[in-house]
Design a protein around this nucleic acid. Sequence first.
DNA 1: GTGAAAGCGCTAACAG
DNA 2: CTGTTAGCGCTTTCAC
Lengths: 349, 349
Amino acid sequence: MNNVGIRKVAELAGVSTATVSRALAGKPSVSASTRARVEEAAKELGYVVSATASGLASGRTRSVGVMMPFLNRWFFTSVMSGAHRVLNDAGYDLTIYHCEPNRLDDTQGVHNPRRERLFQESLLRHRVDALLLVTLSLTTTERDRLHALGKPVVAIDRPQPDIPTFAVDNLAVAKTAVTHLLELGHRDIAYAGGVLPYDLDFQVPVLRRAGYDTALAEAGLPVRSTRVAEGDFTSQGGYSAAMKLLADPHHRPTAIFAASDEMAYGVLMAARELDLRVPEDLSVIGVDGHPMGDLLGLTTIDQHPAEQGAIGARALLVELEPDEQHPPAATRLPFELITRRSTAAPRTA
Amino acid sequence: MNNVGIRKVAELAGVSTATVSRALAGKPSVSASTRARVEEAAKELGYVVSATASGLASGRTRSVGVMMPFLNRWFFTSVMSGAHRVLNDAGYDLTIYHCEPNRLDDTQGVHNPRRERLFQESLLRHRVDALLLVTLSLTTTERDRLHALGKPVVAIDRPQPDIPTFAVDNLAVAKTAVTHLLELGHRDIAYAGGVLPYDLDFQVPVLRRAGYDTALAEAGLPVRSTRVAEGDFTSQGGYSAAMKLLADPHHRPTAIFAASDEMAYGVLMAARELDLRVPEDLSVIGVDGHPMGDLLGLTTIDQHPAEQGAIGARALLVELEPDEQHPPAATRLPFELITRRSTAAPRTA
DNA sequence: GTGAAAGCGCTAACAG
DNA sequence: CTGTTAGCGCTTTCAC
């Protein structure tokens, strides 16, 4: 095993263990020559500091937790991936916590034991120095517990009261999408909205819907309830929403704005099934920047999820390492319209 | 913060810290009444054991590492997700390690500093008790380092010398897929094979290709090189492979077996672009069990990735907790043919 | 700039 | 079954 401790390094370098610790931690109060000797000794012995021992003595574990509602969906894992890169390069490990969604119909006193254990035990074990929350809706109690930890916490994608949050301007995202369609000449634009079954406060859907409404209003167009349908954030959800929106063959919208790329894929499927050509008969635009959109020719608003994770991670690093030099923190999250084959001017325009 | 230590619990329960430790760890040598008192005291104080202190003292961290080549691709994160469920329920946390693929063209002495750090530092920090490797090809040196850790290691999906591996029988998977097509009456079946740019030993592609060859041979059909094309494991890869396979309009296969579902999506795209109807003009079958296959009507061999992760995790638990009762370990990984709209008898059959 | 020494909070012999 | 007693391997005052 790893029988090389700080002690052996100290002996070989001819210094005390305290100095080894300081040298390897990069503390300034070590002479250059000593530091060099220590580093060489450490390398020669293959010494690596023990995470547990260092953690116990210093109180810092050099690992951060990432809490996500889903562990295998593209958007969430992309955020995780971006955060991982940044944190790992800064010497931190990532521990993942699965925060199971509280389904809306569960709110009336239905308990989720795993989620409870997460907040009442796992997080209290001092395994991580900070937490990154991805698209999570927390109860007041849960937020209190988080604050009680006294550790840096940052949220991504869904604003939480009292927690610094990084999210794209969902209103602007939606407006950009709808405006793109308007500029192409569309006047009858439908919205395939996303609903999360666990979305306690409906932030993302509400904002995107608001952006849709606003853009239409600014163009002097009415918002009709028959032009709005909802599904969950999957292709299936997009498909069913589209089937509703396109049900009446004599009165179809000329374009659909889908709340996510995966939903947009479902819309494309529905269009195909109804023998509607895209973009001739129907324009479709999504949101996210999902990799399959390229092949499918889907116009989308790329919100760079990995970059969101990276930004959240950098924000945590600023708090974790106040002395370090940090590049100025990003405040606005970038998003960008990517125009592909699925949108064009309406035929009747 | 968490100022409640084992000491306070001991006081409140009127026992020694040792007894608290034993009681809370579920050791058998504690009387029922004492255990009850301790548990109550712990709950009342909101005591949770410190991961670092416990880890340092016991040598076990109650966390396991998951090493993956990609952090945001469906197959890998699904494996991770399945492993997480099992390990978390057993009281373990998951730490993720990104093992960046060594690209094939890099093998000639090109170094990947992040990957080196992973094996030379991160893993030596004693942050995890065991490791789960997902679809990884390791160098001999890396395997040696892993073994030197003296910790349980299990690999998933790609067999590694000297490491217990759980993987579906890729030969059988491929044979099942091709046999399905043969039974429908197809005699001209192409293979859109997957290649990983980092796949040092080509296990999965080679086995699937072998299954394809075998099934054809057993049916007395020739294997033609013009009926095999390769791409990476993405939709794009499937698309380009299909475009090659379908290039000659006068001599097209009646069915394509794609090495993954995402590749199969690309094949479907290609077919559509060439005005080939699926399944009338072309049958398509994939492998994986990707969730979008349902909507797309893709026939596939579901290999239940989350279940693979769970099985790997259980194997680790058996080694981590020899005393516990464990359900008999799975040896064969399940896979299953899911017949949907994308396969049918060839028109000319 | 460096060393000595006192823990960090818990676990695991070893007694009893 | 339970208490006493050493550490686990490192970090960090506090001196020098």
